[in-house]
Design a protein around this nucleic acid. Structure first.
Lengths: 130, 130
DNA sequence: CTGCATCCCGGCAGATACTG
DNA sequence: CAGTATCTGCCGGGATGCAG
């Protein structure tokens, strides 16, 4: 989180930037997409193949599976291994960094499950107010 | 995280769904957008007004600030208070739920800052490989 | 089996102008 | 001050067809 303290400001509140070099944005942008978290949690259970992942992550298209896996690989969360058999076999597995990332994600998942009902209730009340 | 264990499957790997009723998706979808996290962290430092937030969160447009604040309010993370002065004054502050959410987010921020260099390096290597 | 290439459409988000 | 309204361009992502 890139921050600055404004000198001379009595409140001393921080200023927040949304740059490509902001650590939190790097992570949140990636895991915030529609499929990354589900794939990371799927791969926590062990390496898996392309079509196996496609079957386990319900609703993901071939295109988005490829793209998301490429992104996760680029960030360093996932390893891609090609076995030159016929037909070809490709296995994806978490890297050490990927397994490491899953820890704080678990915290968020746990939080989400705990407070899910509160959030749903809040939405209902908000929508009823107009 | 909504999961199922497939009976008869030797690997017993879970199946992941991406439904509107999935707790983790509810949270990740919201905080995963471009501005939510920055706004939550800005509001951790105390209540703040619309234009003050606009100045502190660099780069956010008026439209997106309004929209993101409305979304955060709907989820129950933010309270909106209107003071009927002239000109009108509107203050935003975190709810108990919002302050609570910030805790696991801190974990993620901390992780992101710690591993930022690894991620940047991974990207460079990936891009050099083609 | 594991993708890539292409077409295409709906929705996100910036810019701008207006209002209580 | 704190928004809403409208217009518009862009691109995320589905569907489909092809390839190593």
């Amino acid at each position: 989180m890139k921050t600055k303290v404004q000198s001379g400001d009595k409140s001393e509140k921080r200023v927040f930037h949304n740059t490509d070099d902001c650590p939190i944005r790097n992570v949140v942008t990636q895991i915030g997409d529609k499929w990354s978290v589900l794939l990371l949690f799927a791969l926590v259970e062990g390496p898996d193949r392309f079509n196996a992942l496609k079957a386990r992550v319900v609703g993901i298209s071939q295109r988005m599976l490829t793209q998301t896996l490429r992104d996760l690989e680029r960030e360093g969360y996932v390893n891609r291994t090609v076995y030159p058999e016929v037909p070809v076999k490709v296995e994806y597995e978490l890297t050490a960094l990927g397994r490491n990332l899953v820890q704080p994600l678990y915290q968020l998942v746990s939080w989400a499950e705990t407070h899910h009902d509160e959030i749903k209730q809040s939405r209902i009340e908000y929508d009823n107010r107009g």
